[in-house]
Design a protein around this nucleic acid. Sequence first.
DNA 1: TTGGTAGAGA
Length: 506
Amino acid sequence: MAFLACNSNCLSKVPDSRRWNKNIKEQVLKGNAKKAILTYINMKELGLHADNYTFPPLLQAAADLSSSFTALALHGQTIKTGFCCHLFVQTALLNMYSSLGFIGDAHNVFENMPLKDVVAWNSMLDAYVSSEQMDNATLLFHSMPLKDLSSFNIMISGYANMGRTVSARSIFDQIPTKDTVSWNSMILVHTNAGDMVEAHKLFKELPVKNIITWNTMVRGYVRNELYAEAVDLFEEMRAGNVKPDFLTMTDVLSACAHLGSLERGNKLHIYAKDCRLDSSPHVTTALIVMYAKCGSTLKALEVFYKSQCKDIYCWNAIIAGLGFHGYGYSALKLYDKMRENCIMPDDITFIGLLNACAHAGLVEDGCQLFNSMEKEFGISPKIEHYGCMVDLLSRAKLLDRAFQLIQAMPFEPGESILGALLSACVIHRDLDTGEKLMKLYFARTRQFSDGEFMMFANLYAAFGKWEEANRWRDKMNNSGIAKTTGCSIIEVNGRIHKFLAGESRI
DNA sequence: TTGGTAGAGA
């Protein structure tokens, strides 16, 4: 309300709809969609009329807010004022529905447009591409009476998201004059397909690179687990005086975290400070993760406490980092602080917390947190949360409770949950629970993986029951896997004779 | 003064 008063004071002196339009647009550009909508309401209250310049940013604001209610109300306003017939307003309506995921509504707007220019066609094309309807996008692309460079670029980015290298390349080769967007999208196609050699080839060929080109490559290396290459490219970037942004920093820190290189991580931290990139919550989170993974929990805490702008990612990272290193109580204390700061936990927070409890043996705290997810926060536990709980109960030797949880969970238990409880059965010498679990798995009509057959075989082998172990081993689709993956069964003359956990000699 | 295309954290 304070904003409205201020706004009306500032703007009522100049009751010019142009100024109001400009103001609305600026709010949207700043990411303040709510204020933009409030400005529009204020404008109407003052008796000013909206026009074809007012609606496009407002429709964008509705999309930014992900508010279908606001979207429908604004669509109604365009009809009421007659501006729904304006080409630019129609295109903005199409884009708003597309952003909200209402592709059918976007298509309706498009179909009812009496005049369609290339921007309208591209908007519909993008609606299909961003909703992964590449078949519809391809049909539309080929039926377009007008195409420009954006049309080709939109198609390439669609294929990039689906990893369709050949289709993307065919579009790319048809472009007479490519721009940086075309090249960057084509590089992304290859990084998404896991072909960093081809991505790097294009990167070298590209005459004019921008920050997105560099970031696409750095991210590509990280996603494809080529961490040293990611760091090297970052150094090349610096040597070439290309200024990294917060996304470059986030990814190179992530590479460093995977490499476990604290020395390099420290240097990157200093660099991020010098470039003032460390204030971004993305970078803060990446720093916390890097320090935690490199074993420096104290530095992770220092980054966390010094950060002026902490979001849920930062909180989740520090909770998970503490939990991973066995500081269960500290993780729980930070969770309390997080709640005091009125930050709502999400499903990732609980994965960190439950893992923290499992590592520190805090069984009852873990159970309470697990129960609070749905009751207090309306978060339905996912299979990962059940996995953490099975791990927590198994580590605490509460095998029957772990079994009951698996029995009650609304998911098909996977290999990792099976592995957690079965190995606990081996450690705590409880074959009964192991067999009960096997029966439960067997009762569910599903396809068993070789990994699961091997776990069953290992369970019996651990208890010296070679006949059963052999029987389960024989069910494996590829029993040769036992000889190549470090399986813990030793086979002599077709019979399993010995169980050696963790050894790979056969 | 207005609508469309590339990367974007666990």
